[in-house]
Design a protein around this nucleic acid. Structure first.
Lengths: 147, 147
DNA sequence: CTACAATCTGTAGCCACTACAGAAGCAAGG
DNA sequence: CCTTGCTTCTGTAGTGGCTACAGATTGTAG
């Protein structure tokens, strides 16, 4: 919460975007889907943000960088907003997300192993019968190598 | 009734779908985007497939299972269709795809490491100041832990 | 012939943005 | 005040790779 952003109280969307590291279009998108409150406006109708909004955007960005979905972030934010969230809730969400990432890693690694096996059978010559293509065509030798 | 599809020459879309392991809607989608040739039709207008089409669908499915994009599959199919594709081309595509998968794995593993670190700091008590939330809020301790 | 299943076309939705078009606001210099 | 030039506005459409309908038609077994 201690931010060394000097005296910037009224930031137009471009400044908020740069400070938070979130695209202008994305900020408007977050507002549209209700992830971010509608900000004040200038007399002419331009959005005006304050440090709190920039901090919230930073929170969202960091969550996204960690792969949380918008709905998960919505949940995290609502916990924060309640102010009486329990650590256990947050922990549960984080661990569940961690598990799902590990699942994706495992799936990708299975793919990579098959690809590696196929590529290593290929001698990169000018054969008309590429082992890779053969492996992909043959359904008795399933590409996934699954049981 | 599991019919042994020995001499099935004229398959309606449902049978092709079951044989190839590709959804009916997906088959029509592949046709729409030009990945699959438009098949013959019955007098009434229903699609009719043959074994070659089913084999092609199987090829596509196996490529998808290995994470190839539609455009990559389009390229692979065009090589196969040319009949004089070189093994080197196929190998290059496969290796490039492998590399991109490894990149995604690395990115996910970085996320997982940060999540793991955050979760392990949390004692799951009923603290109002959850270390996970703190980490997500604090922009001097970037969640990504990136150098 | 009559059920009932399968298939048809076309459209809209998913996720999390991104990319415009065309209009209007805003700040500085003259 | 006026122009210049950047920024921001709204609204819509596109991305990838499907999936899910609605409402109509076709195919088929009894």
């Amino acid at each position: 919460m201690t931010k060394p952003i000097t005296n910037a109280r009224a930031l137009p969307i471009g400044a908020a975007s740069r400070l938070a590291g979130v695209n202008i279009e994305t900020i408007r998108y977050y507002e549209r889907i209700g992830l971010l409150a509608r900000p004040e406006r200038t007399a002419g109708g331009n959005r005006v943000y304050d440090e709190a909004a920039v901090a919230r955007l930073g929170f969202i960005r960091r969550c996204r960088e960690l792969g949380f979905s918008i709905d998960e972030i919505r949940e995290l934010l609502s916990m924060v907003d309640r102010r009486d969230y329990s650590c256990a809730e947050v922990h549960r969400l984080t661990v569940a997300h961690h598990r799902s990432i590990m699942g994706r890693v495992a799936a990708l690694q299975r793919m990579a192993a098959v690809l590696d096996g196929m590529a290593s059978q290929c001698d990169r010559g000018d054969l008309p019968d590429c082992p890779i293509i053969e492996a992909l065509q043959d359904d008795r030798r399933p590409a996934g190598g699954r049981p």
